[in-house]
């Protein structure tokens, strides 16, 4: 057993190490693969705030991932086609600046999370799962029918968006941006879990009736957690679209929502680094086994089965015992 803190650092150092090695060995594809793992990890870290801390099994997090993706796609599309983006009376040129796109993605996905949360958090258990799923499907079918932005075919963006002072077309530099954002969000997530809000949210997941009895509202606590969670997953969606330079309705699909849950469960629900471990394993399996067989998901399923049956704390839970009372 190792202390969770060291495990967290080791996982991040490992990710960085792989990218640096690939940079030195001139393996751009490996850097891109690592970047993909980092971005999926970020999306799953977002989900873990709702799922791990708040106990909210959301089968609709693809909504936020997709909104982030389309925020990037739409803003960049208008610059690429030299057509202004008209929202009511306002007309803007679009944007190819990553920070602007990120903020838009975060704003849109938190707003969506607020609306979805307000409605779905009135239910719990299977009903909550079904309502979030239904929202996901609504967004998915809307995107398919939205021909202005490619409909089912999606949108291709030819040039990756820019970040001041960096050349984002160089894989290692784009990796650096994604990795830095992941570290930042992990840091925030860690602080959040230990904060007064985290303490109350943690209790609201376990015994909502107790939280009410001390004068707090479990509904509001979970709603705020859901919004933060959606914002993080939305940011990941914008990065994912930039990685592929492509957005399509599949970013809204319920399979994606399901995959995010799988990443969190593989790594360890409620564990800070759990989603990162899950994402790395997922991308590694996808790459290594995906080259051998199209049916690589079978192996993923087997691993998931073993984890759920024998290691409820996920891989992180196997490697490191949870410390208690250090809040």
């Amino acid at each position: 057993m190792i202390a969770e803190r060291w495990l967290n650092l080791a996982v991040l150092a490992g990710l960085l190490g792989v990218a640096v090695w690939a940079r030195i060995a001139d393996q751009p594809f490996t850097i891109t693969l690592t970047t993909r793992a980092v971005i999926l990890a970020l999306a799953a870290v977002g989900l873990n705030i709702a799922l791990g801390l708040g106990g909210l099994v959301s089968l609709g997090h693809a909504v936020f991932f997709g909104l982030g993706g389309y925020a990037m796609g739409i803003l960049a599309f208008h610059v690429q086609t030299y057509t202004p983006l008209e929202i009511g009376p306002i007309s803007i040129a679009g944007s190819t600046s990553m920070p602007v796109i990120w903020l838009t993605a975060i704003a849109l996905s938190s707003l969506a999370a607020l609306g979805i949360g307000l409605l779905s958090l009135r239910t719990s258990g299977a009903y909550f799962i079904m309502i979030t799923l239904a929202f996901g499907q609504m967004f998915y079918y809307f995107a398919i029918s939205w021909n202005r932005y490619g409909g089912e075919d999606g949108l291709s963006i030819y040039v990756r968006n820019g970040f001041p002072g960096l050349n984002t077309l160089i894989p290692f530099q784009f990796f650096g941006i994604c990795f830095a954002l992941l570290c930042l969000v992990l840091l925030i997530g860690d602080r959040l879990a230990r904060s007064p809000f985290g303490l109350a949210l943690n209790a609201a997941r376990q015994v909502p009736v107790r939280v009410e009895t001390v004068g707090l509202s479990p509904f509001r606590l979970k709603l705020v957690a859901f919004v933060i969670s959606g914002a993080v997953t939305g940011l990941a969606g914008a990065l994912f679209a930039d990685l592929n330079r492509f957005v399509s309705p599949t970013m809204f699909s319920w399979q994606l929502s399901g995959e995010l849950i799988v990443l969190v469960i593989l790594g360890g629900v409620g564990r800070l680094i759990g989603p990162v471990v899950g994402a790395v394993l997922f991308v590694a399996l996808e790459h290594l086994l995906g080259g051998l067989t199209d049916h690589w998901h079978v192996f993923l399923g087997l691993i998931l089965l073993v984890i759920v049956l024998f290691a409820r704390g996920g891989i992180v839970g196997l490697l490191s015992r949870r410390r208690l009372g250090d809040g």
């Binding site: 602080r191 230990r194 904060s195 109350a200 943690n202 004068g215 707090l216 705020v224």
Partner: peptide
């Protein structure tokens, strides 16, 4: 799942009426 202290702190937090603090450590 929480410690004895964390359970009692939850009550104190409810009494304070200030749960919307996201950064400082509760403990």
């Amino acid at each position: 799942e929480d410690s004895v202290l964390q359970n009692a702190m939850l009550g104190a937090l409810g009494r304070s009426g200030r749960p919307w603090r996201f950064f400082g450590r509760a403990l």
